[in-house]
């Protein structure tokens, strides 16, 4: 302690020296910079690698995406007009990294061909390549970033909060999502060959990104519309449906009364008519005992 006091005293003697101000500023700068490198998100790790990533993303973009989205992501219109119907690829300025991560990681982009809907298919890019593409598109204009797992996970919550989140999410889901995606997320039809895809068994990250960015026909649920907590709750509810046992037995695809009617006719009436044929085919045989006189 004495040693500390003594050295502090020695330092203190120079506090009004000509170089003292400069030394304090340097020290402060070093400390802030050091702290920033420790706590800042990994993505922004170093300015140099981020630039490299964007450059790599641009290369990938030019090869795989620019045909429809334009060489600078400005979008492309067909010659016939400039309405939405005739748009080949929308502008990607401001769609954000979340949109790229959703579209490319689920294999929806790049599209095999233009059509009513980009279907989910095996993805074409590795995780690093998706990240590079996302970084490039994010660099075109500000947009929603790729969500972190803490945004959509309920692991950190207490049991009671978790229960509350699931119940709340169920009500939000039934109000906002079931009209297109069906009551248990089995999907539904949209006009002209489009469809709301099945969202049972979809990774939480993609559901969160879809809510943020509103891909294809889906409306955009901005944070002002559905708060991040509410988005998390919807994902929690969908997860709870998957964890839940099938109380009623085989679910028939979770599509409502149409498959139920099909089952009633094919399995029910089919087997009962079969039984009727069987009963009618087995007629009685009377075995009369011979009675002796």
């Amino acid at each position: 302690m004495r040693l500390l006091n003594r050295s502090a005293g020695r330092l203190s003697r120079h506090r009004r020296g000509p170089l003292a101000g400069l030394a304090v500023v340097l020290l402060g700068l070093l400390l802030t910079g050091g702290l920033y490198t420790v706590f800042s998100p990994a993505q922004a790790g170093s300015a140099a690698s981020s630039e490299e990533q964007i450059a790599q993303g641009r290369q990938l973009f030019l090869v795989s995406c620019s045909f429809c989205h334009g060489q600078n992501g400005e979008g492309m219109r067909t010659q016939e007009g400039d309405g939405d119907q005739t748009q080949l690829g929308p502008s990607l300025v401001g769609v954000g990294a979340a949109a790229v991560d959703f579209q490319v990681s689920t294999g929806r982009m790049p599209m095999a061909r233009p059509g009513a809907q980009a279907p989910r298919k095996p993805e074409t890019f590795s995780e690093d390549e998706v990240a590079a593409l996302a970084a490039y598109v994010a660099s075109l204009g500000p947009g929603p970033a790729i969500p972190d797992e803490s945004d959509y996970s309920i692991d950190g919550l207490s049991d009671e909060e978790r229960q509350q989140a699931i119940t709340n999410g169920g009500q939000i889901f039934l109000t906002n999502c079931t009209a297109c995606h069906n009551f248990e997320g089995s999907g539904g039809a949209m006009p002209r060959g489009g469809y709301a895809p099945q969202i049972r068994g979809v990774e939480p990250r993609f559901i969160y990104e879809a809510l943020l960015t509103g891909p294809q026909n889906m409306p955009n649920f901005s944070n002002g519309n559905l708060s991040p907590d509410e988005k998390r709750d919807v994902i929690a509810y969908l997860g709870s449906l998957e964890d839940m046992p099938d109380y009623g037995g085989f679910g028939l695809g979770g599509l409502g009364p149409v498959p139920e009617g099909l089952a009633a006719w094919v399995l029910g009436i089919g087997s009962l008519v079969g039984a009727a044929v069987w009963i009618a085919a087995h007629t009685t045989r009377s075995t009369k005992k011979k009675v002796d006189a």
Binding site: Q171, A179, G256, P257
Partner: peptide
């Protein structure tokens, strides 16, 4: 075979509807 899983539909509320309402 599950038929009419009422627990998944939730309570009726005129502001809600589900795809596959048949």
């Amino acid at each position: 075979l599950t038929i009419n899983p009422v627990w998944k539909y939730g309570p009726y509320d005129p502001s809600k509807v589900t795809a596959g309402s048949q």
